[in-house]
Design a protein around this nucleic acid. Sequence first.
DNA 1: TATATTTACGGGTACGTACCCGAAACTGTT
DNA 2: AACAGTTTCGGGTACGTACCCGTAAATATA
Lengths: 352, 352
Amino acid sequence: MENDNTYFGVKEIARRANVSIATVDRVIHNRTGVSEKTKKKINDIIKELDYQPNILASRLASKKIISLAVLIPSVSEETDFWEAPLNGITRAEDEIKKYGVQAVNFFFDLNNKESFTKQANLILQGHFQGVLLSPSFVDEAQKFAESCKRLKIPFTFIDSDIPDQDNLCYIGPHLSQSGYVGAKLLTYRLKENHQVLVVNISKETDNYSYIQIEEGFRSYFKDHHIPGEIIRINIKDTDSLSVTRDLTRVLHEHENIEAIFVTNSRVFAVAAFLEKAKRTDISLIGYDFLKENIEYLNNETIDFLICHKPEEQGYRGLMSLYETLVLGKRIEKVHFMPIDIITKENQAFYKN
Amino acid sequence: MENDNTYFGVKEIARRANVSIATVDRVIHNRTGVSEKTKKKINDIIKELDYQPNILASRLASKKIISLAVLIPSVSEETDFWEAPLNGITRAEDEIKKYGVQAVNFFFDLNNKESFTKQANLILQGHFQGVLLSPSFVDEAQKFAESCKRLKIPFTFIDSDIPDQDNLCYIGPHLSQSGYVGAKLLTYRLKENHQVLVVNISKETDNYSYIQIEEGFRSYFKDHHIPGEIIRINIKDTDSLSVTRDLTRVLHEHENIEAIFVTNSRVFAVAAFLEKAKRTDISLIGYDFLKENIEYLNNETIDFLICHKPEEQGYRGLMSLYETLVLGKRIEKVHFMPIDIITKENQAFYKN
DNA sequence: TATATTTACGGGTACGTACCCGAAACTGTT
DNA sequence: AACAGTTTCGGGTACGTACCCGTAAATATA
C-alpha cells in the first residue's frame, strides 16, 4: 500500500501501465495517438493514484503561452472607477505571468456600444484561451458570450451579471441587496416626515445595474413599512452644470427632501452641488471608493460610501481564468463581492 | 543592446562571466567556495542583466523544504474566533505547498501565558525558516522575538502588534481607530442624555488590544464634544452567569444606559443577556464575524459588528513569509486590515 | 505478395535551476 | 622538492513535465 505522502508522477504511471511517459502525456492532455485500450489502462491508474500534476514542472516544460483577453470600459473623464479593476487585473497578471500566462487589455467607451462590439470582434479574431469582461451592454455582451461558447473559450463576468450565459463565473456585487443596504444606512440619518431622493446620473438609460440597486433600495422601505416619499430623477447629461440645474429644480419642488441616494459612483457630482449650495441638512449616500468621493466623505458632505471592491473583482476575475485553465480547479459559478460600508472614520484602511 | 523581453538566466550569466552555472549558483545563494574576484564579476553581471530567478525551475530543482511555524491561540470553548485565522493559514499553505513550503501549527491557551512560552520554545528547538505569530502575551512574545532575531528567523505578527520588534511585518487592525469607528456607529443609535457602557469580557486584565480599542472609542466622543457619560466594566469571569450578574447590576445602577460597546468577540454573551432581559431599547455593538454574533445580528439584538478579516490576516501572514523567503520580495512593515462595518443587511456577502 | 499509408508508441531533449561529487590549482608543512 | 590539506571551480545529474521526431506495427491498396 502506497504511503499517502509519496508523490506519484507521470513516470510511475508509465511504469505501471507499461508505456512511455510520452503516451501518458498524450492521455493526460487528451491528445490523439493512443489506442482506447491503452487509454483506459492509463486513466484507471491516474484515478487510482489520484495523480496531481506538478504545476511547476508542467509550466516550466511548456512553451505554450496562455493568453487572456480583458474587455472592460476605459478610464474616462466622467469617472476613473475602472482604474480599480484594471489595477487588480495587473496585480493578478504579475502573480501568474511566471506560469506563462499573459493578459491583453481591450477597452471600450461606456457611452458607445459600438466600441464594445468592435473590441469584442478583435478578441474573437485573436487567439485567446480565456476572456474577462464587464457585460455593460446587455445585448452586445450576450452576442459575444454566444461566440465564446461556440469557440469553447471560458469567460468571466465582473461588475454586473447576465444570467444564464454559461459564463465560467460572475464576480461582482449583489446589486439589489446593495441598494437595500443603502436604504438601511439612510434610515440612520432620517427624521420624521422625510422625503428621499434617488438620483441616477448616467447617459445610458435603463442601465441594468442601477435599476437593480434602486429596486433593492425601495424594497427596504417597503419591507420595513417606513412612511415617506421616494422621488427619483434621472440625469442624463453628466456635466456639473446639468447636475446643478436638475438638482436645484427638484430640491425647489420638494422642500422636505432630507436625504439623497445616488446609484453609482457619480455621487461626487451631487456632493459638489450640496457643498456649493451649503445644504448641510441633506444626507448623501453613494457608491465607490474614488478620490473625489473620499474627499467629500472626509469633509462630511457624503455620509456613507458603499463599495464592492472593484480592484478585487479584477484580480479574482483574472485568477478565475488562470485557476481553471492552468490549475484545472473547479470555479464557483457566482462570487458575490462584499457590500462594504465606508465612513469617514474607517476609510483610511479600506482596500478596494 | 539586449531586447527587453529576452530572459537571461543562470546560463547566460555563466557564459558572460566565463564560469560554470555551479559557480553562479554559489554566488546567487551566498554559498562559500567562490573567490572574491569571481564573485564581483558575477554580481556585476547579475545587476547588469537585472537577473530575475525563475521560481518554477528553482523550486522544482530544490529538495529543500521550507518550514514555517505558526504560533496562535487554540480555538477554545470561550470563542472560536481563532478558527478564522487558521482557515486563512490553511488556504495559504494550500497555495504555496507546491513551492516546497510547509506550515506547522503550535497552539497556545489564551488564558495561560506559560503555554505560549512552552510552544515558543518548541519552535526554537525545531528547524523553522519563518514564524507567524499572534503576540497575545507582550512580555513572552518580546522574549521570543529576541530569540528569532538572534537566529535570523523572520517573523510576522498578526492580530495585534508590539512596536519596534524588528518583525518582518504586522498584519492586523489599527485598534485605536477601530474603537473610534465603534463610537461613530454608536452615535447613530443615541438620543439625548444618553449613557454608554463599554464592556470588556476577558480573563486577562490590561490586555493591550482592548485598551487601545477603548482609547479610540473614548477619543471619538471627546473629539466631537459629545456630552454623556461613558461607563466601563470589566468582566473577568467569562461564563454566562457572571456576565448576567455583572450586567444586571450595572444596568440597575445606571438606568440611562442606552448603548453598549463590547471590545471583543464575546459580544454574543451580552447579546444573549439583552435578549433574555428583553432589553430592545439598548443598542449593542461588538466585534468579529462569528456564528453566534451573526445570529444576534440577524435577530437585531446586535446592531453592528466590526470585523478585521481574521482569515485574511492568517492568509496574508503566511504569504508574507513565503514572499520574503521564496520570492525574495520586499514586504511592507505594517499592513493594517480594513475596519469592516457589518449590519444585518450586508452580512450575507461578508468574507472574513 | 509487395508497397504505401496510417496508427500507436517510445527515445530523447528542453525548460532553468539546485546541488553533489570530483578535479585542478593553490597553499602550507616537512 | 614532495606531500598533505584546502580552496576554487566545473561536469553532470535530478527535479517532473511538454512535446518533437523517429520507428515499428497495423492496415489499405494495387
